[in-house]
Each structure stands twice: as structure tokens, then as C-alpha cells.
Nucleic acid binder design. Structure first.
Lengths: 182, 182
DNA sequence: TCCTCCATGTAACAGGTTACATGATTCC
DNA sequence: GGAATCATGTAACCTGTTACATGGAGGA
């Protein structure tokens, strides 16, 4: 149920309409908690019904700008500090690693090298947005920077791991030259 | 649709019943691709209907052991090398970071330190299972070791990041002592 | 006028979780 | 005989995705 809290969090930083929020999701939250338009409007309705947000302004074309209520802010703070984050991560990238024995060392190495390259590209992309968040001292900037740093460290780790793994397979292959598995 | 491929992958390493597979999911795949019992039996039925697996043995209590068909193995290899892994990662741990401005520096630091501690515990847990996979040269062991190494590097990265982030907040707080945000 | 963008909503479907339901076998 | 374990299956519900549907407002 974290979409609910993502919305509360965004609205705590300033009121916005569903349309505004959708844009914010696309730019800044896309890598952390993607959401689609239909999901978003549905959840806004449910949040309003639950009294956690309310319409604070209406505009042209039926535009409704929402803001959090006191109950909504309380719920957000509760979630932030008292609800332990989910640990579960599904990774089909890693799932494949378990079964790489089904395709022979050459293809296994190619797979890992490709994953390393993907990580490198992601890392480079994140580097390009670093300067945008870098230069000020607001709260938003501090926490944005911390999240960005996570991405930078993660992509670097993944890149280094993939290269290490490709070398491991090479070493294993040279020890057992016949190549087991298929 | 990766549960399907997780099942094909496991069955490619030896035939098994739904019950067997469930146990394997609980132990070895739990951190990478969790699956519930009801999901599993449903998918086994669909895989059989699609001709990707077949019943290779029947046992007591209605036990049905499945093995992959040739079509199933082809599908597995196709998925392994030709279908690019999903990049999407939802992380409610990271989502919270974006909104930490809503709770004051003290609580924000406490949150990050807790996440660091969680990562440390996970890392220690993974270290305990390292010796189990370490000592042989089979394909399975090689790829199991590579996946484990990912976990070790990931948890270490997360731990270091959380500690760094907590220090960042401290530095920011001492620069702007009043404490902005709520 | 026509196109683009703003703006909201619904319906159908897929994947996943929890809970319910049932029964056979083995071991003590 | 009774408990634990093996073994499979179904139903209700929630979250998320894709696609469909509609219309107002502003600019060229």
C-alpha cells in the first residue's frame, strides 16, 4: 500500500492535482515507485474518501488540487518512522543467474557482461542528473541527494559485480574445459 | 511472467513435484523470486497445458513429479539469453527517503541508521551461508556463488550508504541548526 | 479551425497474497 | 490411534498494467 504514502509524501511538499502528480511520478519517482495514471486517480479518490487528503483548489477543465489533511500528515509520519520497509525484492536479472547453467559458459558470460553494461549506462545517466540536485542546501535537496547517491552506489556495485562474475565463469571454464551443462 | 521461468529453471535442474518446488522456493529462491503455494500449483497447471512441462512420475498421495519438455527447455534458454531483464525496482525503503523532510533531522537519522543495521544483519546472514556453497566446482555452485556474491555486495553497499547518509544529515543539520521542515 | 496539452475517469486483465479445504501417508 | 508431514487444489481479494473513453482550454 505504498502508492498511498507516495501520494501523501508528494502532497506534503505542496498541493497538486492528479495530473501534476502524474508528471512528478514520471520524472522524479519513476525509478523508485512507478505509478500509472489510472492507479493514481483511483488512489486519490480513496485517499479523499478516507479523509487523508482534501480538495484545496479547483481550476479549469475540472482540475482538482489536493492537499493533505492533518490526519494525512499524521499517517505519513507514522509510515515514515514506524512501519518497517519491505525487504522483498524480486529480481529477474538475478533469477536468471541461478539458471545460467542451462546455456553454456559463453552465453552466461555474455549475459553478465550485458548486465554490467546496462549498469554502467544507468550510472552514467544518474551522473548527468547529479549537478541538478547538487547545488543547494534545502531539505528536499539533501534527501534527493541521498536517494541519488543510493542509485550511484547501486549501479556501480552492479557493474563491478557483473565484471567479477564474468571473470569467475572464465576461471571456472578454464578449470573444467569440457563445459558441463548444455 | 517470471514465475513460469523460475519453475522451468528449477525443473531443468531435476524433476520435482509442486511440493518439492515449494520447498526450494522457500530456501533458495526466497530472496530473489518468492512464490506462494497457490501461485505455484496454478502455474504448474498452466505450464503443463502449454506443453512446456510434463508429468514424468507419479507417487503416493497424488504426487506428480514434473520435468521440462524440449519446448520448455527451449523457452527457458530463450528467456535466459534473449529477453532483457526488467529494470524496475520498487523500493519503499528508498521512497521514504524522499519524504524524510516531513519528520525532522533526528528521526530521519534514526531511520537511516536502522536501515544500515538491517543491511548489516542481512550481510551477516549471507556470510553464514557462504561456506555451504563455497566448496565445490559444479555449475550450480558457481552460479549460486555468483548470486550470493551479489547479495553480499548489495548489503554491504546499503550499509555503507546508510551510514554515509546519516552523516550527511548531521552535517546539514549543523549548518542549518534551526532545523527546517516539521 | 485544428492540434496539442490539460485533466479525469472506467473496464478488462494479469500477477500475487491470504485463507480455506481436503485427504493420504508415515512415524511414533 | 494420533500427530506431523506430504500433497494438491480453490476462492476472494488487492495491486498494478493496458487500453478505452471523454471533454475542456489554449495557441497557431
Amino acid at each position: 500500500m505504498s502508492l498511498r504514502h507516495a501520494l501523501l509524501g508528494l502532497l506534503s511538499q505542496g498541493s497538486a492535482s492528479g495530473y501534476d502528480l502524474l508528471k512528478i511520478f514520471e520524472i522524479s519517482l519513476a525509478n523508485v515507485w512507478p505509478a500509472t495514471q489510472s492507479q493514481l486517480y483511483g488512489e486519490l479518490g480513496r485517499l479523499a474518501d478516507a479523509g487523508l487528503i482534501e480538495v484545496v483548489a479547483e481550476g479549469p477543465r475540472g482540475r482538482k488540487a489536493y492537499g493533505p489533511t492533518e490526519a494525512g500528515m499524521a499517517e505519513l509520519r507514522h509510515w515514515l518512522v514506524e512501519v518497517p520497509p519491505e525487504q522483498l525484492r524480486r529480481s529477474d536479472m538475478l533469477l536468471r543467474v541461478f539458471f545460467l547453467g542451462a546455456v553454456g559458459a559463453e552465453q552466461a558470460r555474455a549475459y553478465l557482461k550485458e548486465q554490467g553494461a546496462v549498469a554502467t549506462r544507468s550510472h552514467e545517466h544518474l551522473e548527468t542528473i547529479r549537478p541538478i540536485v547538487a547545488d543547494d542546501d534545502h531539505d528536499l535537496s539533501v534527501y534527493g541527494r541521498i536517494a541519488l547517491e543510493w542509485g550511484l552506489r547501486f549501479t556501480r556495485m552492479q557493474q563491478e559485480w557483473a565484471e567479477w562474475a564474468a571473470r569467475e565463469i572464465e576461471a571456472h571454464t578454464s578449470r573444467t574445459p569440457s563445459g558441463t551443462g548444455v
